[in-house]
Design a protein around this nucleic acid. Structure first.
Lengths: 218, 218
DNA sequence: AACTTTTTTCACCAGTCGGTGACAAAAGTG
DNA sequence: CACTTTTGTCACCGACTGGTGAAAAAAGTT
């Protein structure tokens, strides 16, 4: 019956309380949305006084920064499935990125809400989240790009932006109303339609573009 | 010096006040966003007491319905540029729809905010707006579709949904932070990149699909 | 003129928000 | 033990929100 100083003690442990608050903040953002994201709601959810949010995180801004730090890890975890796989061509890399993004947004409400927040209610707070997200995404691409050359004769940046925007918006609308433009987006089968379309779009759009060095015909 | 009973009298004219309130509501939604959309903000903007919103519109819900009624007109007006033009092929129709949507979302903050509202904060109120919008959009397609046959061997619904989602999200992000995924979306030149990508995407994705009746080779 | 109806404003309610100062309780320290 | 620091709670503030009852002000009616 030795005293068991469990690291995650339930009484008067600052670091533990900090974690509880951080988890509560994530939960509020993921489940209630950013319009409900405030000190009162977070403290209520964490089961502690809102004063602690100010004391430990300096207010909402510091709390958002703490979420941003976890964001990179979350991203890596969600997009990490084929870890060591290398890709033959650049469009194959983009194709996998889009499909992974579909999975990631479907799996994580938090990620989705953050993406929505940046777009719908921009602020200095969300700008830092956006930066963290962009960093994580760029890192994902770089680590598995190898030395693949970008296609020429095609606006790669705009194309990727459009396709990622499509994925993001479909995921948002799916979460909100279960579909978009008359297309249901709830079951895996529903989303398989989108995955097929994404494959078609990325292959078709990159098909016309010559790829330097290695041009494997289909 | 005859008494000029101007239709839009400035004093004690109910229908005039109703219009002022409606315009104020649209302005608040377009400029401040749906998070600020409430009786207090609207009344403040309209320069009258909020009580009149309840008396004349029965509250926020009735006011939103009134906006919805104007929405169809707004849509028709924004997307009406090539009025009588007919299209040779179905993808050409979709292509024009996407390009028109880009123009419409760039031109009307109100339309954009409503689209965002539906996705972010779904409610019975926004559902009616979504229905009005969907009706107007479907009407646009029907009136200029003629008897064009849909391509086979391609998921038309999912493809169109993805492309429309891309346009909508790019427009939203552009309004919010001036770009998306590292691509600036402010000037006409910026958007011309997106238009080009959309043209490529729709043509490429529909190219593989056989079109019944008339299959004009590029 | 007096009266009724419509249009508009005002005052107030309860609830929530972000934020702060003061205090209680536990824990460490001598 | 007494003392200090840390951890947590409570009460309160001003500002804003959605919503309502009642009175005032103008317009119409006879």
């Amino acid at each position: 019956m030795a005293i068991k100083p469990t690291e995650t003690a339930a009484t008067r442990n600052r670091s533990h309380t900090e974690q509880v608050i951080l988890d509560a903040a994530k939960a509020v953002l993921a489940e209630e949305g950013f319009s409900k994201f405030g000190v009162n709601a977070i403290a209520r959810r964490a089961g502690c006084d809102k004063q602690l949010i100010y004391r430990y995180y300096g207010g909402i801004d510091g709390l958002v920064d703490a979420i941003g730090l976890d964001l990179a890890d979350l991203f890596q975890e969600l997009l990490a499935q084929p870890e060591g796989t290398r890709f033959e061509t650049y469009p194959a890399l983009i194709e996998q990125l889009l499909l992974s993004l579909v999975s990631a947004f479907r799996a994580s409400d938090l990620l989705l809400r953050i993406a929505a927040w940046e777009v719908f209610d921009p602020s200095p707070v969300t700008a830092r989240l956006a930066a963290a997200r962009a960093r994580a995404l760029g890192q994902w691409v770089e680590t598995r790009r190898g030395n693949l050359a970008s296609p020429v004769g095609i606006d790669v940046g705009a194309t990727n932006a459009a396709l990622i925007a499509a994925v993001q918006h479909l995921a948002l609308s799916a979460k909100a109303v279960g579909g978009f433009a008359g297309v249901a987006l709830e079951t895996d089968a529903d989303w398989e339609r989108i995955r097929a379309v994404l494959r078609t779009l990325v292959r078709a759009s990159y098909a016309a573009a010559p790829i330097p060095q290695d041009c494997t015909a289909p």
